[in-house]
Design a protein around this nucleic acid. Structure first.
Ligand SMILES: [Zn+2]
Ligand SMILES: [Zn+2]
Ligand SMILES: [Zn+2]
Ligand SMILES: [Zn+2]
Lengths: 130, 130
DNA sequence: CGGGATTTTGCGAATAGTTCGCAAATGAGG
DNA sequence: CCTCATTTGCGAACTATTCGCAAAATCCCG
């Protein structure tokens, strides 16, 4: 009772290693394909379960892509920050949250990232709900 | 041949009217339920097709929710702006894109919206892709 | 007000992504 | 090694979304 087990297994190591070397959001299917390419035989169910597991540990971030397919990336959501996503290759660069207004400039300066769009969502309580 | 037909039909009017009175993102299923509640019998397929149609006309915005289910709201995506989404009731208020830094303040002042979080995504080309 | 060409709808079947149940395999600990 | 809890694989079940096709609705024009 109490302690939650956290076995180290081949499938989990393989999946973590795929995520570790891809700085972009990957779908469960893409991860599964990556495993096959590496010669690692892991069921798709296990991929999903491992992703849930990693998400539970706070090791990965999940996000539905434009079509609603959920994608995952190694990234600590606990450290509040945002993402710059390359429209061409999908590469993700972390962006801290300090000065929003400077983002466009600093992004370019720091990462060579050429900004051409952004999406923002604010959350909170509307007047009626307070 | 050129002109694209754009029939005015009951289902389309009903669906548009549901969207018109809900300032929040609704899933196809929620819209379908709303139609039934109104006594309007429309198939779920038609709901999806009408949503595609409205999206094609640029009348609605679609966005996958956290679980990947796609949701829709009456909102012109052509006028670039962002959304403040109430964590409690889902109400969406439009926010223009001018001065990002002032958003938190102005949101509260203008709409009584109490901000407690935000998600931002930048898009563009990374250094490697340029 | 029809009549016919065109578009839209409903239905059920087909997809695609994700989850589940359960028996067999694996990892942790002694 | 042995034992027990956890994890895996497999196939079936689910859910959201899309499709094909015949029937119904809309529009246009006379
Ligand atoms: Zn990150
Ligand atoms: Zn790139
Ligand atoms: Zn809007
Ligand atoms: Zn609210």
């Amino acid at each position: 009772m109490g302690l939650r087990a956290d076995y180290v297994t081949r499938p989990r190591e393989w999946i973590a290693s795929i995520l570790a070397r891809e700085p972009r959001f990957l779908s469960a299917a893409q991860i599964h394909q990556g495993l096959e390419r590496d010669g690692a035989r892991v069921s798709l169910s296990t991929v999903y379960r491992t992703l849930d597991h990693l998400q539970g540990k706070g090791d990965i971030t999940a996000r539905p892509d434009a079509d609603g397919e959920v994608t995952y990336m190694l990234c600590e959501p606990s450290r509040h920050h945002h993402h710059a996503i390359c429209r061409t290759c999908g590469r993700v660069e972390d962006v801290d949250c300090a000065a929003m207004e400077q983002f466009a400039e600093s992004l370019r300066a720091r990462n060579g990232f050429e900004l051409d769009g952004h999406a923002i969502e604010f959350f909170g309580k509307c007047g009626a709900c307070r």
